[in-house]
């Protein structure tokens, strides 16, 4: 007997809706990549600058927004200044600005003093490399069109190498580009947050120490939230994730049972 695909869709929908609607939560235990990420960020001191690049489309915000929110909270709580920008993706600007503004209001941080949102700049790889030569030949204004020359950032940061750390939140290969052009070439320490799909790729850079830490997928965000002691969308989604994963495993099992019983006949 074959299961109709519409039934599969319906059961999957229900298995996600019920845990979310009931607000069920499960405990997650942080794994090594997230612990490393946490302690790398914890190593930053008050007044240090951390550069955060958003290199994802809104389509993968499910996994990455919770990371950005948690990361901003972590950095702000340690009084680290944030330079947020999206030089490798032109479709995340307004969303990124909203996320950092919301996080800043929770911690009473001021725009263009405690944090800067610089938005998009064309040029991709040339822009990344140019940041290592002269930051202001790449960015001259913030996303909201404030002149950078008039802001405290201008005094503290000359090139990207003046940032103590670069954290890339991405849904594609951008972390490798940033490792190539910013970490290798200009020596800025890097950590990354990425979708689960890409996490497998980045383990090799984590293993070699080129990445100081990594958040992988919604689970990574949930682990990070656990370490920070905050409740965010990552932890909230883990119950639904559990049920849906079990469903997928059951479907694989059902498919195999059907296949082998069909072959025996």
């Amino acid at each position: 007997m074959k299961i109709k695909r519409q039934y599969i869709y319906a059961v999957l929908f229900i298995s996600v809706v019920i845990p979310l609607a009931t607000g069920l939560t499960f405990k997650v235990r942080p794994g090594p990549p997230v612990k490393k990420f946490y302690s790398a960020v914890n190593g930053l001191n008050e007044g240090d600058y951390a550069a955060v690049t958003l290199s994802y489309d809104p389509s993968t915000k499910a996994e990455l927004n919770p990371m950005v929110i948690a990361l901003c909270g972590h950095l702000f709580s340690r009084d680290v200044k944030i330079i947020m920008m999206n030089p490798l993706n032109n479709s995340i600007g307004n969303l990124g600005y909203e996320l950092i503004t919301r996080a800043a209001s929770l911690y009473g941080k001021k725009e263009n003093d405690d944090y800067y949102f610089l938005g998009y700049v064309p040029g991709e790889k040339s822009a990344l490399q140019n940041m290592g030569e002269d930051f202001y030949s790449v960015y001259s204004k913030t996303f909201m069109k404030a002149e950078l020359k008039d802001l405290p950032l201008y005094r503290d940061i000359k090139t990207i190498a003046d940032a103590k750390m670069l954290i890339d939140i991405s849904d594609g290969n951008s972390t490798v580009d940033l490792l190539t052009y910013v970490n290798t070439k200009y020596g800025v320490p890097m950590a990354a947050g990425t979708t689960a799909i890409m996490a497998g790729e980045y383990y090799t850079y984590l293993n070699s120490g080129q990445l100081l830490g990594m958040l992988g997928g919604l689970r990574g965000a949930a682990e990070y939230e656990t370490m920070l002691g905050v409740n965010g969308k990552g932890r909230r989604g883990m119950a639904a994730q559990t049920f849906a994963h079990i469903l997928v495993l059951l479907l694989v099992l059902a498919g195999n049972i059907e296949y082998f019983s069909g072959r025996r006949k």
């Binding site: 915000k61 997928g217 909230r236």
Partner: peptide
């Protein structure tokens, strides 16, 4: 390695559904 990637792909896809249900659909109920 491909198995691990497949496992992670399942995780990614499910997360996308969780988010859309959480942030849009459930807001109306």
């Amino acid at each position: 390695a491909f198995g691990a990637t497949f496992g992670y792909t399942v995780m990614s896809r499910i997360s996308l559904l969780i988010d859309i249900i959480d942030s849009v659909v459930l807001r109306f109920f």
